[in-house]
Write a protein that binds this DNA or RNA. Sequence first.
DNA 1: GTCTATATCGCGATAGAC
DNA 2: GTCTATCGCGATATAGAC
Lengths: 210, 210
Amino acid sequence: MGVRKAKAAETRAALKEAARRRFAEHGYLNTKITDITAAAGRATGSFYDHFSSKEDLLRALLADWHEQAHGELSGEDDNPPHDLTDRDQLRAHLAVPWRMMRADPAVMVALFESQAAAGPTTGEAWRRLTGDTRVLRDHLDHLRERGHRLPGDPELVAAAIGGLLSMLAYALMSGAEETGRSDDEVVDTLTDLLLHGLAGPRTGASGAGS
Amino acid sequence: MGVRKAKAAETRAALKEAARRRFAEHGYLNTKITDITAAAGRATGSFYDHFSSKEDLLRALLADWHEQAHGELSGEDDNPPHDLTDRDQLRAHLAVPWRMMRADPAVMVALFESQAAAGPTTGEAWRRLTGDTRVLRDHLDHLRERGHRLPGDPELVAAAIGGLLSMLAYALMSGAEETGRSDDEVVDTLTDLLLHGLAGPRTGASGAGS
DNA sequence: GTCTATATCGCGATAGAC
DNA sequence: GTCTATCGCGATATAGAC
């Protein structure tokens, strides 16, 4: 490949990196195209030589994200299905998406705000929620087939968990430091909440009796 | 009061009602001020005789909402605190906010999209989440004081539940009909999920063993 | 491919007649 | 208080030189 192509790729990468920073810091909707080019040290017009719109750029970021996710998760053994009533396995299924969202706040924030801006009637929110929790849903399906009684329809339960994760991740972006909550605390709490609920493990040692 | 004032109030009400319809159908962010005035059958300029901005109108809608909520909940006895490990009481604490969100989709949608547009670093999302779940948090605090072991810090657990509710409500707005899910199914599912988790009530009759 | 300069436009907001 | 008409701004997108 020639030098020209290499420089072009460099600019493209600079724009994506600048967008990442702006999205994470100021949000996706608040970020204007001129903000991105300015942060990347390029001219406004150059943006359109690489992306047709802000949504197009987001799609590119999402593609990178998927690629990386595939690389990291390629070692995962997903057959046979995991048992989500096992604490360690459930925790892993919460910790992985949580870590990915925290590792790439820009994409997470952009997707969240983008779906919100799309409006409620488009169905995009529900589509994304069910799509992103497909793995969870499959495991729940398997549990049910084995005779385990679930709180409700697997797709709905999975969507609920996914919604919980994304909403909480977005909300905690403000100041996870300020509120003084570590990732471990959050994941542990959610694990216990989703495993045994508010009632707890029912060990018989609960002091809730009055 | 004079006729002029009455007509003014009528226009104000018409604008609010039109905004409600637009917000619920097309979303808050997608709705322009001219959309609202057009839907209300008024001129663009009239808007500013009643509200200074779209956010101002949202505040007015929110005030109405709070007023109505107070009216409906005035009969509630919140002292002494409820026991959220009791299925009926937990269900009620999920069903009430769920019903309110479903009864007034416009306000719910507007608040959701508004907080998303504010960006992640403002902290508004976390502030709203903790604020809206204050009651829940208080009940959880009380449970803990009685010696009950919770999944984690009451504020965090309450926020998680609140996030779950709002995200799911927004996502299901698209087509609760299309997906064929009734309010009862959702509330029942969430109640069971949050009461005993994925593991279930531990009656000993679980067939999850292989 | 990247730049500067500018066209274009939607939309918020205001002015002034009625 | 409500209308019509319009201004002004911010942001997208394009044109054309280098």
